[in-house]
Write a protein that binds this DNA or RNA. Structure first.
Lengths: 203, 203
DNA sequence: GTCTATAGGGGGATAGAC
DNA sequence: GTCTATCCCCCTATAGAC
């Protein structure tokens, strides 16, 4: 992470990402972003016009980046269903371990669907036009898996991956875990989740 | 819901619950709470001194109420492990269907652990001193279930229940679901989740 | 492009009449 | 207890010098 020698615009965006991700839109003050970026408050408005516009950029970029991996993996012609599950579990556990604030950020800020973001991004295509869906339906027809619906399947997979990170403060308290122990559990889940998903869908 | 004939104090608390749950602490304006309660802004401070104090009350009550069921079920001497799973799934899917804003509210607002709330509430006892834990360990020893740890088991159970509600706007977009279809999927999960949990833990 | 200074408005909290 | 009016701080955004 070379946070030095970035353009001013990139420094502001990087700082905005950090603060917005941690505190959400309403909880963030533009002054905090400016301070984090090591620049003056006026520069923020010079480059991005307003807090709202800057947030819109960060939000869109964050969502796009976060679902990029998923889209690519779900549409890989060469990998099997099982391999897709493994790649998604492993890839997202690593990604969220590096950027732990993102899931809660997305879930919180999507609540009131700001600026119709859900309509702007290609969410409908994500499942309906995917190689994954074809493979899933084929596997059901051939009796290899028994699952009520692909959306339930996806809910379970993503939920098993993402939920522990969203509920991390609670789970650390309930399980009396320190940060290292929590991370170890998450690493174990890279292998466990594919097994569980397989067990859940065995015909 | 008799929202009429409540005491003024209760009207304010009810309004505060609604707004805080939907918008979070930072996104809520005390003026909105006053309007929702049908009273004047000054009365809010008369009864609760400050926005922060009012929020603390709502937060504590919300968390306590939300984990009440779980605590009771996990400590029932008479029910088996399987029965506990069924009761938790069924109870929480109904509860969250009635109060859909609560999970995201808790996950968002717990981020910075306001006022050490996690230490104040009895989360450590929730698992460590539970009948559930004894039953779980016994089942592992007797070879009836194979599961890395009780905390993983709880993560999975709670995650399978709660995550779809947290990710609801995304899942509705991805699956092209309307509200009724989404609710139907959640109702199906009352029966599916206990089956899945059973499949995942079969030795 | 980057800064200082400040305008402008919103929101939490209070004073004081009733 | 409940209201109206108002204070005052904080935050976003801009003007204008360099």
């Amino acid at each position: 992470m070379t946070e030095i020698n970035l353009s001013t615009e990139e420094k502001i965006k990087a700082a905005a990402r950090t603060i917005f991700h941690k505190k959400g839109y309403a909880g963030t003050r533009t002054r905090d972003i400016a301070e984090e970026a090591g620049i003056n408050l006026a520069l923020l408005n010079y480059y991005f016009r307003s807090k709202e516009k800057l947030f819109g950029i960060i939000m869109t970029e964050t969502m796009t980046a976060f679902f990029q991996n998923l889209t690519v993996i779900l549409n890989d012609e060469k990998s099997s269903l099982d391999q897709k599950v493994e790649q998604i579990a492993s890839g997202y556990i690593d990604l969220i371990s590096r950027e732990p604030a993102i899931p809660t950020f997305i879930m919180s800020e999507i609540r009131n669907n700001p600026a119709g973001l859900l309509e702007k991004l290609p969410f409908k295509k994500l499942l309906t036009q995917s190689v994954f869906l074809k493979q899933f339906n084929t596997a059901v027809q051939e009796g290899r898996i028994s699952e009520p619906s692909p959306i339930q399947f996806l809910m379970n997979l993503i939920g098993l991956i993402v939920f522990p990170f969203i509920a991390k403060p609670l789970l650390k308290a309930i399980g009396d875990l320190d940060e290292t122990q929590f991370q170890n559990l998450m690493q174990q889940r890279k292998k466990l989740i594919p097994q569980w998903i397989s067990d859940m869908t065995k015909a």
